[in-house]
Design a protein around this nucleic acid. Sequence first.
DNA 1: CATGAATGAGAATTCATTCAT
DNA 2: AATGAATGAATTCTCATTCAT
Lengths: 218, 218, 218, 218
Amino acid sequence: MKTSKQTKAQEKINKKKEKNYQKQVQIIEGALQVFGEKGFEATTISAICKKAKISDATLYEYFNSKEDVLFSIAEYYTGTEIQKLKEVNHYIHDTRERMRMLIQAHLEFYESNPLYSSVALLNLKGNRNFIKSKAYGVVRESTRVFVDTFSEGVEKGIFRDDLDKYLVRNMILGFIEHLVIQWLLIGRPDEISTYRDTIFEMVIRAIEKNNPSPRSLS
Amino acid sequence: MKTSKQTKAQEKINKKKEKNYQKQVQIIEGALQVFGEKGFEATTISAICKKAKISDATLYEYFNSKEDVLFSIAEYYTGTEIQKLKEVNHYIHDTRERMRMLIQAHLEFYESNPLYSSVALLNLKGNRNFIKSKAYGVVRESTRVFVDTFSEGVEKGIFRDDLDKYLVRNMILGFIEHLVIQWLLIGRPDEISTYRDTIFEMVIRAIEKNNPSPRSLS
Amino acid sequence: MKTSKQTKAQEKINKKKEKNYQKQVQIIEGALQVFGEKGFEATTISAICKKAKISDATLYEYFNSKEDVLFSIAEYYTGTEIQKLKEVNHYIHDTRERMRMLIQAHLEFYESNPLYSSVALLNLKGNRNFIKSKAYGVVRESTRVFVDTFSEGVEKGIFRDDLDKYLVRNMILGFIEHLVIQWLLIGRPDEISTYRDTIFEMVIRAIEKNNPSPRSLS
Amino acid sequence: MKTSKQTKAQEKINKKKEKNYQKQVQIIEGALQVFGEKGFEATTISAICKKAKISDATLYEYFNSKEDVLFSIAEYYTGTEIQKLKEVNHYIHDTRERMRMLIQAHLEFYESNPLYSSVALLNLKGNRNFIKSKAYGVVRESTRVFVDTFSEGVEKGIFRDDLDKYLVRNMILGFIEHLVIQWLLIGRPDEISTYRDTIFEMVIRAIEKNNPSPRSLS
DNA sequence: CATGAATGAGAATTCATTCAT
DNA sequence: AATGAATGAATTCTCATTCAT
């Protein structure tokens, strides 16, 4: 089963593009709901198709496999989200403000899309195949704003120039995502976006320049 | 048939404690290897038992289900790790140093136990049943050192008293775990413990007291 | 995992009716053969499917479980038999003759369908779940002719009015079925329908009216 | 599994006799309870042994298999019951009264031992292996009283001499057992021994001699 | 005698996926 | 384009039974 998947996957490249985009979205939305509630393994194709009001076989006209559907969810939602972010970003010129906005936007996006958060953080983050997928590229791309914004700050001299920019991204995303995961799993805190300013402020302290560490750091 | 299953489920609890502890560990170690390499779903009971050199049926003398084995891995390793931490912790009096040590210890533990890291961060973190399990309690307990250390710092006046201690823990763990996950999945960075000082330093800046944020924070 | 099973159970009901009736019968006939020869527990789904020339998975498109197949056999054959009985019954006006016919029909049905007899009397009679099933309703219904015929005789004044009609049914069915079971298990007597007249006559003596018991019955 | 059972069974002949009779009874009583409540297939050796307060392995010191235990229940209880019957029988000289007593005794035995009734009528009657067992011989033997009593009546000229004595036994046992099964499964009637006189009287009418059937019997 | 420990053997069921129509 | 029907392939878990101690 595992081996044959690989082989067949190649024969079926990009079935998607050719077909009705509308229906793809319909399926993705159905899948989001079921995956989000039950998790990937516990979800059946049948359940997705029932939500999407299509037959099981039809799903395979639009996607190559159950996992393809899962990954496509990320691609779709991230793509959509990136658009919004770019627009807002366009109007913000202050780097610090951009960073604040990014954190806020991420928190709010997760908070207002718990099903997607569940899929992304409980099912995708940790999926070894995901990182090989095209969808992962899109998701990764979407986090580049943090890297870029940090770099921008470094150039402007407001952020420390002795930090690995990817490590900074790690910190910010790790912080946010860990919080969201906890919120999803144990329901605490009630609202995560409440913390947006504190989080921003902690991040800023960690990365801002003229912010001498009181004692020398070994 | 259905009803008797329910009944038996109750009788089954605590099958473990009564039996040979040695063999439990043997199974846990076999399972760690297979789960760590293939992931929970892709792992079969047979594979675990082959590694542990026991029959499939025997596994069920010691554990109630595949998931029980998974959770027990966390319980076992965390329990062991907590012991070590407590010992070291005992000899460190400086709060800052304690925090440094904790971060270092966590990073090194993950780095030197990639299989366990894989199980814990790719399979357990995100498992909705895990948080209901006894094992989760142990894991959670093990992270309390961060909360306690932070509180200690607050009391001593070296850490900010305007931060939610759980949020602080979130930041630290999120940061570390996100880094480890990336390391596991895409192999970067090569060595995560290299970053121990930078990470510590970023964390410290975020939580240390006499560290006025240069501009006012809205 | 546990919860979703419950949910699915509800969705599953009535899988049958919607699908190809032809194939259902095909499966039922295959199952009859295997159940009839080996008994319920000793029969495997595989064996049934081999007889029915379908794959194991296909069986589950038409039935919900092995037990569902078993019960459906009874429903199917009883349903068919009831039809025949009703037709014949229609042309018989004499109550005594009707009773004779019923006994004869039952004996002959069992005798000419030993596989079904085996399933019905060795596997179903005594199955605690069966009485809760829909199929049981059909079977029960099919024995009502005995009750009705007896009542008819009572009304006409030819049968005793001091007997519980259900007890009468018990006697007749118990008599017949016990005989059939013996025939199935130890092969004696060779032919059960040989006894049709004797059985009828014994039954009649027990229930007929102007048939004073010689001595007083305490 | 099926084939090896046969082979091994021969090696293990009569393990029973040599051992502690006390413990055998203890096991049989435990088994009666579990078999009686759950049925043969749904009963596990473990459950029996828990009731009997011995270890699973010990059961096999006294019995050769799970089925052996089942059959032994019948042997034990029937043996005990036969004793009682013989005693009572000894003091009854009237054939008709003997028949009345037998019916009454059977009904009362079943009614006061529902667990045994369940085992005997739901699990044993219909078990194809049972008839090959030694236990079956004992059970069969116990029903000979009906045959003998009927023969006695025939000799004395009070019972019809045109009836197959085994058919008579069939009628009586079938009647009684069918009633008991119904009582076990659907709980009706509330008390079966209430019917003892009616049943006796119906039986008597069917078999008594100077009891001319009103019309000629074809 | 009693039993703790180990296991062989199986078997029902699930589901993603395919394909002819 | 859509789908009803069919199935291959797999896997957890159960349990009667054995045997060394």
